[in-house]
């Protein structure tokens, strides 16, 4: 066999001696260490949620609940209208998301695809308010909602969230990356603005829309301050409120609290796992563009 020329060895110079197993193992060990740190509280939460009321206080000594009580989860629904809380959270976050995505996408279309006198000035106004911190808006929004008679109602929970300067800004940035020649081609093909919006721009802005929808849904699902000041009626409580009230009335029943909070955590995780790839991109996009 003729002598083979030595294969050029590809080494990644940027990252230390790539081939060295020690550094590989060290990195993996580091990742594992932090991974375990991130996971342990959740594992513990699961164990606590399955324990009996007596076992849960001894869990640190037993390391595992001797008897498993899945019925804790059902009990949560008997003690408080947990299903109602769930429904409220989904209902409110869902509607806010739908409305916000629609209004923001339409506004973004007006800011990015239509040329009209005064466009830049109005957009500047939107941009200006992005810097105003949320706390400034809390009190006046409360007053506005009070004035509109939306206090203690779904309306009050949903309507103020149905518009967002940030969402408009984000989608506009996204739409600006779509070539205008597509709109022009569609116009020549015979499409009006509404068609161009729904059939060309919106489908192409889908990644941006999904990111906005995820952030919007998760944000409203977790939202605490606004429902706290707005809701007086038990039947209007969203999950965070419900959990807090549950904790203050059944705080000693740790397994139930843990079961309830664990259930509340499931939807975000599901959403995240399903749409992970959009979310990661979106966060990174937000920073680059925003």
């Amino acid at each position: 066999m003729p002598e083979q020329p030595a294969q050029p060895r590809t080494t990644i110079v940027g990252e230390g001696r790539a081939g060295l197993p020690i550094s590989r193992v060290a990195v993996f060990a580091g990742l594992t260490l932090f991974g375990v740190t991130a996971a342990v509280p959740f594992v513990w939460q699961i164990l606590m949620s399955l324990a009996t009321l007596t076992d849960v206080d001894l869990l640190t000594q037993t390391g595992f609940p001797p008897t498993l009580l899945p019925s804790n989860y059902g009990l949560v629904f008997e003690r408080v209208p947990f299903a109602k809380y769930f429904f409220n959270s989904f209902f409110v976050a869902g509607w806010v998301t739908i409305l916000q995505v629609i209004t923001c996408a339409m506004a973004a279309y007006a800011f990015s695809r239509v040329q009209w006198p005064g466009r830049e000035k109005v957009f500047l106004l939107y941009l200006g308010t992005l810097m105003i911190p949320g706390v400034v808006l809390m009190v006046p929004n409360f007053a506005v909602v009070l004035g509109l008679g939306m206090f203690n109602s779904y309306w009050g929970l949903i309507i103020p969230g149905a518009f967002s300067a940030f969402g408009t800004f984000m989608l506009r940035q996204f739409m600006l990356t779509i070539p205008t020649s597509l709109d022009e081609a569609a116009a020549i093909d015979g499409a009006g603005h509404w068609r161009i919006f729904t059939e060309v721009v919106l489908p192409l802005a889908r990644p941006g829309v999904i990111v906005l929808a995820i952030f919007c849904f998760l944000g409203n699902y977790n939202s605490f301050f606004w429902p706290l000041i707005l809701v007086k009626d038990v039947n209007l409580r969203t999950l965070p409120l419900g959990l807090l009230v549950f904790d203050s009335s059944y705080g000693r029943e740790t397994p139930l609290i843990m079961a309830a909070s664990l259930m509340a955590m499931v939807p975000p995780v599901v959403i995240f796992l399903l749409l992970n790839r959009y979310l990661v991109k979106g966060i990174q996009l937000g920073a680059v563009k925003g």
Binding site: T103, M106, A107, V114, V144, I159, P160, A162, F163
Partner: peptide, 12 residues
């Protein structure tokens, strides 16, 4: 296109 958002923006 802008109206729904602009209304909300002005009011809230």
């Amino acid at each position: 296109f802008l109206l729904p958002n602009l209304l909300g923006f002005l009011v809230f």
